[in-house]
């Protein structure tokens, strides 16, 4: 498999009145085509910053960020970004929320994309709510709507910033499975930022462990667990050992940070 996304010696600084904050330091990693990569790291280390750089919301200070071998540009529709909270617009119906991207960019194949949106809504049991407002949906349903809103523009690379952290545990497992299913069946490449090690292990082909700020890559773990769904992968016999390994890499980091 070829690398779809590539970070080469990427540095990023936030400029504030008080100081210059070195957020990312000489960051190197790759994400393969149609694979699922997770980024874990201590709080405030720069995970969201990485996604914002990929999405073109921030400009890197130095280094190269390549998408399919070319520098990423602004307004690249190959990238879809899903935030921690669903950020559905309460004054819009579910349908109007889902087609927001189409409305903003008026693509030539808008009708085709709308049809695709309807298909997705039907497939994931949301079609009956198409003219309801977001407030009448549960947290899990809202998160699925947010994912569909991102998918409608047919991005090849999905960025997920802790999309499940606002959900309760049970819903979380279910939505994880749903989202994983959607991403795999739509053949997307995904980069997931998460605090939850078991979530990372159960969903990913690769886990990138970051150090505390300024973030550097501390460890890269390739995974190949048995099981079709994230939930079933949690049954894999190596799951526990992997958890310990990643946990050590992370906490080890935290100790050096404290001393």
């Amino acid at each position: 498999m070829s690398a779809m996304l590539e970070f080469k010696d990427v540095n990023f600084f936030y400029q504030t009145k008080a100081a210059e904050i070195h957020a990312l330091k000489d960051l190197n990693f790759t994400v393969e085509e149609q694979s699922f990569a997770s980024i874990v790291g201590p709080s405030g280390c720069g995970k969201t910053t990485i996604l914002s750089l990929i999405a073109g919301l921030l400009k890197k200070s130095s280094g190269r960020i390549l998408l399919n071998g070319k520098e990423i540009e602004e307004n690249d529709w190959r990238i879809g970004y899903m935030f921690q909270r669903d950020h559905l617009f309460e004054w819009r119906t579910i349908w109007q929320n889902v087609i927001l991207g189409i409305e903003l960019n008026k693509p030539k194949d808008a009708d085709k994309k709308k049809e695709f949106a309807q298909q997705l809504l039907k497939k994931y049991d949301l079609y009956d709510f198409i003219s309801s407002k977001p407030r009448s949906l549960s947290g899990g349903m809202r998160q699925r709507v947010a994912l569909i809103r991102t998918l409608v523009m047919e991005p090849a690379l999905l960025l997920l910033d802790e999309p499940f952290s606002a959900l309760d545990f049970q819903t979380r497992l279910k939505v994880c499975d749903d989202v994983y299913e959607i991403i795999k069946s739509e053949q997307k490449t995904a980069v997931l930022v998460t605090h939850d090690i078991s979530e990372a292990i159960s969903m990913s082909d690769k886990i990138i462990v970051l150090s505390s700020r300024p973030a550097t890559v501390k460890h890269v773990q390739m995974l190949n667990l048995n099981g079709e769904t994230p939930l079933s992968r949690r049954e894999d016999p190596t799951f526990g050992a992997l958890f310990d390994l990643i946990w050590k890499k992370l906490t080890n980091e935290k100790q050096t940070q404290n001393s």
Partner: peptide, 29 residues
């Protein structure tokens, strides 16, 4: 208006006018 919602609009390549018209204004009703 929630800064993340503005980021969301930007990640969907909305221009300033669209951000105002489709987010800031309805958000202030």
């Amino acid at each position: 208006c929630d800064a993340d919602k503005i980021q969301l609009m930007k990640s969907m390549h909305a221009n300033k006018f669209q951000i105002f018209w489709k987010l800031i204004l309805p958000n202030a009703t």
